[in-house]
């Protein structure tokens, strides 16, 4: 992808974005490259909680050689526009895991855009994205999976769930599969919902105030996304940042 020309909404992966916000930081820096050699294991994490008026565009280009494995944990919750993209190429038997929580409110547009190419046989990929949106926020997930013609034994999954706390918030989830091989498993599931009203009343009937009840349900919804972060301090940092953003959202929605 060329970073020189400002994209338009006609480009598929910018379709739901905030182009005006992107223009304010264009051209963005070149993508960050992550390359793992044969059999290498890696873990990366990005906690994107920039200030409300910031614009953040982060692009990653990732190449995983034979048998390499990368787990990427992402909290995308900051900025007027917070956009994180992954362009991943998997060689034989490589594995890419994306574990993302997207939490936004106000006028935020938060995006996760992935292109995972299974270029060689027996590679696996797993993407889990949990999105919580309040206010007039927009959350976008665009996930493309490409499977080359000879990449038999591919196993790719996408699990994308979004929770809307207000009527004005919107979530777009768009999986896209391009499969040219036969022996391939590609599972994708998307669900967009609201907090369970029955559960909220049940919790209120036990004495939980609405804000605490909402936060508990939202915590349960994103729980597990950061479980795989090996470093305990880092995991706690991600969990605390996610929780504090959820509490802020619950507070704002409680006042609405």
């Amino acid at each position: 992808m060329s970073a020189l020309a400002l994209p338009t909404r006609r480009a598929e992966d910018w379709r739901y974005s905030n182009i005006e916000a992107a223009a304010s930081v264009w051209p963005v820096p070149a993508p960050e490259r992550i390359v793992l050699g044969p059999g290498e294991q890696g873990a990366r994490a990005l906690l994107q909680d920039a200030a409300d008026d910031a614009v953040v565009v982060r692009d990653y280009v990732i190449t995983l050689a034979e048998g390499a494995r990368l787990d990427f944990h992402l909290l995308n919750s900051g900025g007027r526009l917070g956009r994180v993209t992954f362009d991943v190429r998997l060689e034989r038997g490589a594995h890419f895991g994306l574990h993302a929580a997207v939490i936004g409110g106000g006028e935020q547009t938060l995006e996760v855009v992935t292109t995972v190419t299974h270029a060689e046989p027996d590679a696996t990929s797993e993407q889990v994205v949990r999105t919580v949106l309040g206010g007039r926020a927009t959350g976008n997930y665009l996930g493309k999976i490409g499977v080359a013609k000879h990449a038999q034994g591919t196993d790719a999954s996408q699990s994308v769930k979004a929770m809307l706390l207000s009527r004005q918030a919107s979530a777009n989830a768009k999986p896209e599969l391009e499969i040219f091989a036969d022996d391939v498993k590609c599972a994708h599931g998307c669900a967009i919902g609201e907090l369970d009203k029955q559960a909220l009343f049940y919790m209120a009937a036990r004495g939980l105030d609405p804000q605490t009840a909402q936060t508990l349900l939202l915590r349960a919804f994103v729980a597990g996304v950061f479980d795989g972060i090996a470093d305990e301090a880092e995991r706690e940092r991600f969990e605390a940042a996610a929780l504090s953003k959820l509490e802020t959202l619950a507070k704002l929605e409680g006042l609405a």
Binding site: Q198, A199, F201, L216, L217, R219, A220, F221, A223
Partner: peptide, 8 residues
């Protein structure tokens, strides 16, 4: 009908 609350 007590309500189920997964994750809590």
């Amino acid at each position: 009908y007590p309500v189920e609350i997964p994750g809590v």
